[in-house]
């Protein structure tokens, strides 16, 4: 049973890690806490439902398309909400508040329109096939989650470390003003980063919607609370930290439910996050360069 629980935990952790990756990317490069991020998660799942059920597109293609569309939504929302604030050099917390309001707006619009009932992918669109391997029960959606995570992580690593665009992204993350002085088009880089993070958030939403076959408007808000715990544990803006902390949280939650008590499962993340703030506020792998007051 331990092996099975560990597998459940790693899959859950992979989703947490993937989700936190996009979130921490925005903060690391653009320096804002963008609360609309949870909405991309819900939006991705709903889009995939629409593409497969409404338009009859295959699941794999729908996954890709949902990621692209949520990426686009992220670029538009950033342009509408955050660009004016950047231009006005508004205080740091203004961006948090504006995305908070936008999140409330988007979620409640979505639930007023779609209702809050859980929706499910019809069996003809997607059926989870389970098979046994080394005594473990594995499902296709679980494999897909693990594969997507590896692909996204290596792709992101390649992009930021090996390409010119990656250099520009890293420069902007290091020092915005200096990067602009060096001739980097900050607007374009901002759009690319928004697109990437929105896309990752959307993909994570489709994958988890598929794995538990449950899609509802507020699924992103639930995820966001875990996302905060993961990015605090891993260090705000730290991509490697988000990966490790995400996997760790997934495994710990599953083990808690399996061996200690299922009622404590959801408190694990918050407990670890507060502990991190007390003991090591820069996160598990944080460099001490986090902006201090």
């Amino acid at each position: 049973m331990l092996g099975q629980q560990l597998l459940n935990g790693v899959v859950l952790g992979a989703v947490y890690a993937l989700f936190a990756l996009g979130f921490t990317l925005i903060f690391g490069v653009l320096g804002v806490i963008n609360l609309t991020y949870g909405f991309y998660f819900s939006a991705g799942a709903f889009l995939a439902l629409y593409f497969t059920q409404g338009l009859g597109i295959s699941m794999m293609l729908a996954l890709l398309l949902a990621g692209i569309v949520t990426g686009g939504i992220a670029v538009i929302l950033d342009g509408l909400l955050l660009t004016p604030l950047r231009r006005a050099k508004a205080p740091e917390l203004a961006s948090l508040m504006v995305t908070l309001g936008a999140t409330l707006f988007l979620y409640s619009l979505m639930s007023a329109y779609f209702g809050t009932d859980i929706r499910r992918l019809p069996p003809k669109v997607f059926t989870n096939v389970g098979f046994n391997w080394l005594g473990l029960h594995i499902e296709t959606s679980q494999l897909l989650i693990l594969v997507t995570m590896v692909v996204i992580v290596s792709g992101l690593g390649w992009l930021t470390q090996r390409t010119r665009m990656g250099l520009a992204i890293r420069a902007l993350a290091e020092n915005g003003t200096a990067a602009q002085l060096a001739g980097i088009n900050a607007g374009a880089v901002t759009r690319i980063v928004s697109f990437l993070s929105g896309g990752i958030g959307g993909l994570a939403g489709v994958l988890i919607g598929m794995n538990y076959n449950a899609i509802e408007p507020y699924m992103g808000e639930q995820m966001m609370l875990k996302g905060f715990a993961v990015v605090i544990m891993g260090g705000l803006g730290n991509i490697r930290g988000a990966l490790v902390a995400g996997l760790m949280l997934g495994v710990l939650e599953t083990l808690t439910a399996g061996y200690i008590g299922s009622s404590l499962k959801d408190a694990v993340g918050f407990g670890l996050a507060v502990l991190t703030l007390w003991v090591r506020p820069v996160g598990l792998f944080g460099r001490a360069t986090i902006k201090r007051a």
């Binding site: 806490i33 917390l93 948090l96 609370l225 959801d266 993340g269």
Partner: peptide, 20 residues
């Protein structure tokens, strides 16, 4: 623990408080 960090930390440390 958040007092000496940027204001963002207080906001996200309190965001999960209601849920927990």
């Amino acid at each position: 623990p958040t007092l000496r960090l940027s204001g963002v930390y207080l906001a996200i440390a309190t965001i999960g408080l209601g849920e927990v």
